[in-house]
């Protein structure tokens, strides 16, 4: 069973967000990394890039698939996980920890309402599996 930490919020497109003040750290969920399989490459944004909520920010690739990563919040990229460049497998090994993608300095302190709780996101993944 994939793991869904309850202190995080999730997007329908499988990103997670961890908020600390105005800093939102973003990665992909355990469910997403399982679906993708072995991650072989992550294309990260440049620091300073302004991002719109639900806009494309990064790309994650496995051998058989490539998925866009969308910004779950609006703001500006202030940090990226450059370790993923040489060790993309970290996304598989530790999706909620060392496998984070980037940090957004949020322009609004409130999280968008449509970000899911762990419970709701878990149900969403279950639905996708059943399809």
């Amino acid at each position: 069973m994939p793991d869904f930490p309850s202190d995080l919020r999730y997007a329908l497109t499988h990103e997670w967000v961890r908020v600390n003040g105005k800093r939102a750290t973003v990665g992909i969920s355990d469910y997403a990394q399982t679906q993708l399989g072995d991650v072989v490459y992550v294309e990260l944004p440049e620091i300073g890039t302004p991002v719109e909520c639900e806009g494309e920010v990064a790309v994650v690739e496995s051998v058989k698939a490539a998925s866009d990563i969308y910004a779950p919040v609006t703001g500006k990229i202030v940090d990226t996980n450059n370790d993923l460049e040489n060790a993309p497998e970290t996304v598989n090994a530790d999706p909620y920890g060392e496998g984070w993608f980037f940090v957004i300095d949020m322009s609004d302190e409130e999280l968008p309402e449509d970000l899911l709780t762990a419970e709701a996101y878990s149900a969403h993944c279950q639905d996708e599996d059943d399809e």
Partner: peptide
Amino acid sequence: LQAREQHIR
């Protein structure tokens, strides 16, 4: 590097 190509991307 097939993720660059049309059948995946």
